Simulated assay, not measured.
Amino acid sequence: MRQQTWFAVAVCTIGTLLGFVVGGLLMLVSGAWSASSDFLYLRALFGIETPGKIYQFIFGEGIPSFIQAVIAGFIAVWIMEKVAKGANLGLAAMITGGLWTGFLIFLLLFSLRITSFTTELLLSMVQGVGLWIGLASAAASLPAPSRSAIA
C-alpha cells in the first residue's frame, strides 16, 4: 500500500519531537560532559575566565545540543521508516528539515525583536544544523524507493 508523502512528513515531524526528548534524556544522563571546568587552570592561576567560558559553551552546551539534534533526526527518520512504508522517505525527511528550519528562523527573528543576540540563539542554530545532519544522514542510509512508490 502506497502512503502519501504528507503522512510521512507528519510522522517525521512528530518523531523529531520524540527524538529531541530522547536526546535530552541522553544529555541529562551523560551530565553534558564538562560541568564548570577550569580550562588549563587559567582562572585559578591568572584570573582569566574567558577561555574557560568559551570551553564551557562549546563542550558543555554546544556539542551536547548538536548531538541531541543529530539523535533527533535519526530517531525521526527511523520512526518514519517504520510507520510510513511506501512513501518517498528521503523527500519527507528534507521537507521536515525545511519545516523545522522555517520554524527556527521565525523564532530567531521573533527573539531578536525582543532581545539581542544571545548564546541561546546560537545554541538554537547549532541544533538546527545538527537536525539537518541527522535527517540527511539517516535519509541517505535509507533504501531507494521502489518503482511502485515513485509512480
Score class of each variant (00 low, 15 high):
Met1Cys: 14
Arg2Gln: 01
Gln3Lys: 12
Gln4Ser: 14
Gln4Phe: 10
Thr5Ile: 11
Phe7Ser: 06
Val9Ser: 03
Val9Leu: 05
Val9Thr: 07
Ala10Asp: 02
Ala10Ser: 10
Thr13Leu: 15
Gly15Met: 03
Gly15Gln: 04
Gly15Arg: 02
Gly19Pro: 00
Phe20Pro: 03
Phe20Cys: 07
Val21Cys: 05
Gly23Tyr: 04
Gly23Gln: 07
Gly23Glu: 04
Leu25His: 03
Leu25Ile: 09
Leu26Lys: 08
Leu26Tyr: 07
Met27Trp: 08
Ser30Lys: 05
Ser30Val: 10
Gly31Cys: 00
Ala32Arg: 11
Ser36Met: 12
Phe39Tyr: 15
Phe39His: 15
Phe39Trp: 15
Leu40Pro: 01
Leu42Glu: 11
Arg43Asp: 13
Arg43Asn: 15
Ala44Gln: 13
Phe46Val: 09
Phe46Gln: 04
Gly47Glu: 01
Ile48Thr: 15
Glu49Thr: 14
Lys53Tyr: 08
Lys53Thr: 09
Ile54Ser: 15
Tyr55Pro: 07
Phe57His: 10
Ile58Asn: 08
Phe59His: 08
Phe59Gln: 08
Glu61Ala: 14
Gly62Arg: 14
Ile63Lys: 06
Pro64Gln: 12
Ser65Met: 12
Phe66Val: 07
Phe66Ser: 05
Ile71Asp: 00
Ala72Thr: 03
Phe74Pro: 00
Phe74Thr: 01
Ile75Pro: 03
Ile75Gly: 03
Ala76Asp: 04
Val77Asn: 01
Val77Pro: 02
Trp78Leu: 14
Ile79Gln: 03
Met80Gln: 05
Val83Thr: 09
Val83Lys: 15
Lys85Leu: 11
Ala87Ser: 13
Asn88Leu: 07
Leu89Ala: 10
Leu89Arg: 14
Leu89Ser: 05
Gly90Phe: 12
Gly90Gln: 09
Ala92Leu: 01
Ala93Asp: 01
Met94Val: 10
Gly98Leu: 06
Leu99Asp: 01
Thr101Gly: 02
Thr101Glu: 00
Gly102Val: 00
Phe103Asn: 06
Leu104Met: 12
Phe106Ala: 04
Leu107Pro: 01
Leu108Pro: 06
Leu108Met: 11
Leu112Ile: 02
Arg113Gln: 12
Ile114Leu: 04
Thr115Ser: 13
Ser116Ala: 14
Phe117Tyr: 02
Phe117Gln: 00
Thr118Asn: 11
Thr119Lys: 14
Thr119Tyr: 14
Glu120Asp: 12
Leu122Gly: 09
Leu123Thr: 10
Ser124Leu: 15
Met125Leu: 14
Val126Tyr: 09
Gln127Ala: 12
Gln127Ile: 08
Gln127Glu: 11
Gly128Pro: 15
Val129Phe: 09
Val129Gln: 06
Val129Pro: 03
Gly130Ala: 05
Gly130Glu: 02
Gly130Cys: 03
Gly130Thr: 06
Leu131Met: 07
Leu131Ala: 06
Leu131Glu: 02
Trp132Pro: 02
Ile133Phe: 08
Ser141His: 09
Ser141Trp: 12
Leu142Ile: 05
Pro143Gly: 04
Ala144Ile: 04
Ala144Asn: 05
Pro145Glu: 01
Pro145Asn: 05
Pro145Ala: 06
Ser148Phe: 13
Ser148Met: 12
Ala149Gln: 12
Ile150Thr: 01
Ala151Gly: 02
